[in-house]
Nucleic acid binder design. Structure first.
Lengths: 205, 205
DNA sequence: CCGTTAACGAAACTGGAGTCCCGTTATGAG
DNA sequence: CTCATAACGGGACTCCAGTTTCGTTAACGG
């Protein structure tokens, strides 16, 4: 009886074992940088959808193309923007909306997965970019209103301010284990509003 | 001869075709939310590394565990922090470092892929979180110095300020097609510094 | 330097993802 | 309503990722 399994390489970690590890890690980096992450099973999706798997393979072919179509679908369902009368209030409403979405177990996992999928395929990435462009454009007017009120400098890049609200929440979702709570949302909104008022998002300077 | 392929479903898009699409998209969302994104071929990695594929399967087993090990390796190689004497200068140095990394084709693709991999597996996610914790902790002292100089409020969350610098750059990498240029880095640093000085990153308030 | 055995790797095997074939269903034009 | 055919779906087939087996190589304690 031989026990190697998960702890193989722990007893004699030097020499060949170390060289193998280095070579494999190098190759992993290369492979990931080149192909990215490969797709999920379409047969399983057909089963869940109670649809012939031939149909799924014929119409979409790969998971990445399927996800691109899903993003197209998601982009069509838009949520109404709320107006509060102040930049901070509007950004906070936006931040809370994003926070609720990412904190929801199913939605949060879905957004993570969709972003991961876009990592592997150019068409899917394009669909993801279009999705966020639409969402950002939907909220940008609140920054324009702040410009009109004289709250922020004239030539502020309105889209960049909206992105600045979401960025910390997505960064936390992807790179940290901490939960996306309301405090994080409010902090993101406050930071973006403060920086915008101070002229940190001037365009093309 | 039958032509269906990619444009199947375009001639008769109503009725059954539409129902199939809805069911499949629903199932795709469910599958992604549950399993996330599945792994890449280990046999290919063994070939690249010029190592027996049995060895790779025995020592790592899955791509996600392999990526977790890669992250452990990446966490060990740290870059020295530069000190400029002002919060904005230090944050700008950090932002430029992140910017150069993400803008580099291989490194940028690698980071995208690693984040995608962490999306699918708890252990890999933990390894990713540890990686970023280390990086953040490495730069946090520059914010502490700014506190000591009286540049930012006493009870500022120093880690959160560092994260605020990276967040917009990663957000752009993942959700937008635009390149990560120096202007973006400088804007991220300026926004974070401004918000920090204004007390947007106070801890636990 | 020697011996034990951890770790590697070639080759044969297997299960299921992805493809192909062809009959069935039902859309939408006339 | 009718008909041509777009689109679906069951089932057989293929091929390769992942597993198992077993012989070979070399790490490291003495």
């Amino acid at each position: 009886m031989r026990f190697e399994g998960a702890d193989s390489g722990t007893v004699r970690p030097g020499g060949r074992t170390a060289r193998v590890r280095a070579a494999v890690l190098q190759a992993t980096g290369d492979a990931l940088a080149e192909h990215g992450f490969a797709p999920l099973d379409l047969a399983d999706i057909a089963r869940r959808a109670e649809v012939g798997k031939t149909t799924v393979y014929r119409r979409w072919g790969t998971v990445t193309r399927l996800v691109a179509d899903l993003l197209l679908d998601m982009a069509e369902q838009s949520l109404p923007r709320t107006e509060t009368g102040s930049l901070f209030g509007d950004l906070k409403a936006n931040a809370r909306l994003v926070q609720r979405t990412l904190a929801d177990p199913r939605q949060g996992a879905l957004f993570k997965a969709v972003i991961a999928a876009a990592t592997c395929d150019a068409k899917t990435a394009e669909a993801l970019h279009r999705f966020y462009d639409i969402r950002v454009k939907e909220w940008a007017p609140c920054v324009q209103q702040a410009i009109d009120r004289g709250e922020v400098p004239e030539d502020t890049d309105v889209h960049e301010v909206i992105r600045a609200v979401s960025a910390p929440l997505y960064y936390r979702l992807l790179t940290s284990g901490e939960s996306i709570d309301e405090a994080a949302a409010d902090r993101a909104a406050e930071a973006a509003a403060t920086a915008a008022r101070a002229g940190a998002y001037l365009r093309g300077v």
